[in-house]
Design a protein around this nucleic acid. Structure first.
Lengths: 338, 338
DNA sequence: CTTTAAAGCTTAAACGTTTAAACAAAAAGG
DNA sequence: CCTTTTTGTTTAAACGTTTAAGCTTTAAAG
């Protein structure tokens, strides 16, 4: 019981052609008028021999691999892990498998993964695109390979995407902090050209302006990705008493966690010394001595929608790009109080 | 620039047979004495036409898909997310892609994923096996499909695996708590038949005994997987003052997190009212008001080793099963002090 | 009876590769 | 000059499917 069983093996065992076996096992025996008895014998033999169809051969014939490629920044980041899980579940429901790859926000990694996945004939992509990958997406478009962006998108690129309303997310969070009476609300973010980064900043800024506050570069802590030392330096600087910051809004989960650690180190008390509003979910938010307020993204919804849209495109209902913008949930807890 | 380019297209463009193109693009032009000039023309044309080999066709021919299947309980659990990342990186280095699937510790899900992956002709598995899946693994053995277990293993099943020294992990943690002067060290674990569950319990128990304490069922909180309500009930029961518990050892990361939440809810102070020792890593351990002690697993090492072993098996050096048991790191911090 | 239709099955090509074997032409050896 | 070797290339089969088209045999219709 070691060798793989093929259609041919079944055909020989039953004494028919492979065509007939194929018809029956694909439930096309009605349309192709296979004798009921023959069909039964084929089905029985397939079961007896424990036949497992070779998806590779099917794929080669059909040109469809029934697989989708998931490209994220880092699968070990729970944010992407949760997205991956939602995508896996939805894909599985429709008979699709998921290949994943982590780009680490790096251009070449992203390109290599795209190439690998194309070679593997994946039917489509779900991508959380890294900065500067617009040209890679252009290429996919030209090559007619369907894809859906998640988490991030490009304003000047016509693609399908499922993102959150980033502007509104930070707008609401900032507004909440301001309404609580905080006067110097700082903002911590990554320095990059991605649209969602800009949208989040705009939301923060607009809330400030609408509240009668002026834009203040002293309140902004903008750091590079993957540079913990630089973050530490900048963030500690932001917390110096002379800056007078009394509230902080973090714009991603990684920044939130890194920030909270330093706040603890410096023995700053939340929310008495400093109010805090974080982004995304983390077990840590519940376990912090002061329950952390956060912007909650509808991760399962994002994953589910992305798969749905991708499948529609695969099925040729590629009517046009679909752009979905989902609302976030503002979870306000003790950490943002005055 | 929409249609896929095949060997045939290049062959026609250059005016040679597909065989020659195949030889050249696989760098076999030396051995097969292809004319240098022809080879150059083929290479140039391939580049010009942006040829991307069809891995599906290659796989069908070779019987090797250059893909491995990763089966975990839940990819959104950071523990598995981190393992997945380590596995992805190591696999990528050797030209392998990774398909993943979450079983949710469920038998049928596990079987379905295995079947799907076999259909897809993955070359081998890396599996964190769910309870009761021994027979599924037996099947893989019989079918000669290479696999390596991670995190868990079965004592009476000859397989390759990469796990931690679970006995030692809980032994050391328990001993540390006892040496600090805690007298009633409770143990929180899942109720299942998995070997690592038993090993961890044995480690805890042996430490108690070696310290002159007796086994005490009042100190054990054993709960079912995926039943938060039951856990809450049992765990609160364990914390009742009359039980006199002064320290707790959690045996997994999910139990740790759930437990800490309830400890917070009940306003129990760590470590004054109760010492705590957790398992695995979590951002929350650093951000808890009292830094949490924990048993740190060498996740990248586990992932890396698992891939290495699997690849050795794939390359036919299937000398015999390889069993790797790695040491954990005991990170003792304030939470375990008296 | 003959013709037509229906039922039940097989043949063969195709998907994009790989690779052993065959072949032709040119070069070398005698 | 003929034979052998070398060089450079093509042919064709194979991997495991799918599926249009063709082929028998039997049944129905006239």
């Amino acid at each position: 019981m070691s060798k793989k069983i093929s259609l041919k093996d079944i055909a020989e065992a039953v004494g028919v052609s492979t065509a007939l076996v194929s018809y029956v096992l694909n439930d096309k025996d009605e349309q192709t008028r296979v004798n009921k008895d023959t069909a039964k014998r084929i089905r029985e033999m397939a079961k007896e021999m424990n036949y497992q169809p070779n998806q590779i051969a099917k794929s080669l014939k059909s040109g469809k691999s029934q697989a989708i490629g998931l490209l994220v920044a880092d699968i070990s980041n729970p944010f992407f892990g949760n997205l991956a899980r939602a995508i896996e579940d939805e894909a599985k429901k429709h008979g699709y498998s998921v290949l994943f790859g982590s780009s680490d926000e790096n251009l070449e990694n992203s390109q290599r993964l795209i190439d690998t996945f194309i070679n593997r004939q994946i039917d489509g992509f779900i991508i959380a695109p890294a900065e500067g990958t617009a040209s890679q997406l252009e290429y996919l478009k030209k090559a007619n390979i369907p894809f859906v962006l998640i988490d991030r998108y490009f304003k000047d690129l016509e693609t399908s995407y499922v993102v959150i309303d980033n502007f509104n997310a930070t707008y609401q969070a900032t507004q909440l902090l301001l309404n609580q009476g905080h006067t110097k609300v700082a903002y911590v973010c990554y320095k990059n050209q991605l649209q969602h980064t800009e949208d989040r900043y705009s939301g923060y800024l607009q809330a400030l302006l609408d509240h009668g506050n002026a834009e203040d570069s002293n309140l902004i802590c903008e750091v590079e990705f993957n540079n913990a030392a630089y973050f530490r330096e900048q963030f500690i600087e932001l917390l110096q008493p002379d800056r007078g910051v009394d509230a902080i809004l973090f714009s991603t989960n990684t920044l939130s966690i890194m920030g909270l650690k330093i706040i603890n180190e410096l023995n700053i008390t939340v929310p008495d010394d400093l109010a805090v509003f974080c982004f995304d979910e983390s077990e840590a938010y519940d376990l912090f001595y002061c329950p952390i307020s956060y912007v909650k993204q509808p991760l399962s919804m994002i994953g589910k929608e992305a798969v749905k849209i991708l499948l529609e495109q695969l099925r040729g209902k590629a009517s046009s790009e679909q752009k979905v913008m989902l609302d976030v949930e503002i979870v306000a807890r003790k950490s943002c109080q005055k």
